[in-house]
Amino acid sequence: MEIKISHYYLIVDLEATCCDSGTIPRHEMEIIEIGAVMLNRATWEIDSEFQQFIQPVRHPQLTDFCTKLTSIRQQDVEEAPKFIKAISRFKEWIYSFPNHIFCSWGNYDKKQFIQDCAFHNFPYPFSSEHINIKEEFSEYLSVSKKFGMAQALNELGIELKGIHHRGIDDARNIAAIYRQIKSKLNNG
């Protein structure tokens, strides 16, 4: 029996349509940015990055709250492809890296992919394996508290780089967290 070894951690962070007034229910939120990095398990370096804005169709007009939170502008999503084209590009990119494991900070990103894939009738592009780095971080510290990504960076003494709540920047920052906890676990 061949043992499949994962060579990459595919670290994904999504941004989605959102509001602070309840006008966009959770089940109608849509991905507006995919940020992803391939973290090489041998070198602990990022070998490749993927960033894609997506044009929402349920609530095509971004709320002021969403724009302030993410820094994603209306123009960014209006000029972007719709979900099927964007996820097809993403799938092509991720499958150019064999033996990857889908990872994210918490389960939100996995659930959002499942929701959007179902809405657009597109097959879920990942295997069933998913690593919740937020949970692994709490286990690493031996605490039950769940940290936000920015809190976790602070806890490790790592500076947040880029813009918080931008998919590609958050994916890079999550990779920095994972690199540090995995290298300490492997060397400690």
Results as ranks from 00 to 15, higher is better:
residue 154 N to A: 08
residue 6 S to T: 07
residue 148 G to W: 09
residue 37 V to H: 00
residue 73 R to M: 14
residue 25 P to Y: 08
residue 122 F to K: 01
residue 171 A to L: 06
residue 58 R to S: 15
residue 95 Y to V: 03
residue 47 D to S: 06
residue 62 L to K: 00
residue 174 I to Q: 04
residue 105 W to E: 03
residue 148 G to I: 07
residue 187 N to M: 09
residue 162 G to S: 03
residue 8 Y to V: 01
residue 63 T to P: 13
residue 142 S to G: 11
residue 185 L to C: 05
residue 128 S to N: 12
residue 55 Q to Y: 11
residue 110 K to M: 13
residue 10 L to H: 01
residue 78 E to C: 12
residue 159 E to P: 07
residue 28 E to V: 03
residue 147 F to H: 00
residue 112 Q to L: 10
residue 139 E to L: 13
residue 156 L to Y: 13
residue 58 R to E: 15
residue 152 A to T: 01
residue 86 A to R: 00
residue 92 E to T: 09
residue 80 A to L: 03
residue 135 E to L: 11
residue 28 E to H: 14
residue 12 V to H: 02
residue 21 S to I: 13
residue 73 R to I: 10
residue 120 H to P: 11
residue 40 N to Y: 04
residue 85 K to C: 11
residue 17 T to M: 11
residue 177 I to C: 04
residue 82 K to T: 15
residue 114 I to M: 12
residue 56 P to R: 04
residue 171 A to T: 01
residue 121 N to F: 09
residue 109 D to V: 00
residue 40 N to Q: 08
residue 170 D to V: 04
residue 92 E to C: 09
residue 166 R to S: 02
residue 155 E to P: 09
residue 26 R to N: 14
residue 33 E to V: 02
residue 75 Q to D: 15
residue 43 T to C: 13
residue 107 N to M: 14
residue 130 H to D: 08
residue 49 E to N: 09
residue 151 Q to K: 07
residue 158 I to M: 05
residue 185 L to A: 12
residue 72 I to A: 01
residue 43 T to V: 06
residue 59 H to Y: 14
residue 168 I to K: 03
residue 30 E to G: 00
residue 182 K to R: 08
residue 67 T to H: 09
residue 162 G to E: 10
residue 94 I to V: 06
residue 107 N to Y: 13
residue 51 Q to M: 11
residue 165 H to S: 02
residue 185 L to W: 10
residue 12 V to G: 02
residue 41 R to Y: 03
residue 138 S to D: 06
residue 103 C to T: 00
residue 91 K to F: 07
residue 10 L to S: 00
residue 146 K to F: 10
residue 85 K to T: 15
residue 13 D to W: 08
residue 138 S to M: 09
residue 174 I to K: 00
residue 57 V to Q: 15
residue 128 S to E: 12
residue 21 S to N: 15
residue 83 F to R: 04
residue 61 Q to T: 14
residue 104 S to Q: 07
residue 23 T to W: 07
residue 155 E to Y: 10
residue 141 L to P: 12
residue 1 M to V: 14
residue 109 D to C: 08
residue 185 L to K: 07
residue 4 K to A: 10
residue 122 F to M: 09
residue 5 I to W: 11
residue 89 R to W: 10
residue 175 A to I: 02
residue 129 E to L: 13
residue 162 G to A: 04
residue 17 T to G: 04
residue 20 D to G: 12
residue 3 I to L: 10
residue 129 E to D: 13
residue 19 C to H: 07
residue 162 G to V: 09
residue 157 G to W: 08
residue 111 K to I: 11
residue 139 E to I: 08
residue 112 Q to A: 06
residue 41 R to M: 03
residue 165 H to M: 05
residue 132 N to S: 05
residue 112 Q to P: 10
residue 110 K to S: 04
residue 130 H to C: 05
residue 53 F to D: 05
residue 156 L to H: 02
residue 162 G to Q: 07
residue 85 K to A: 14
residue 19 C to M: 03
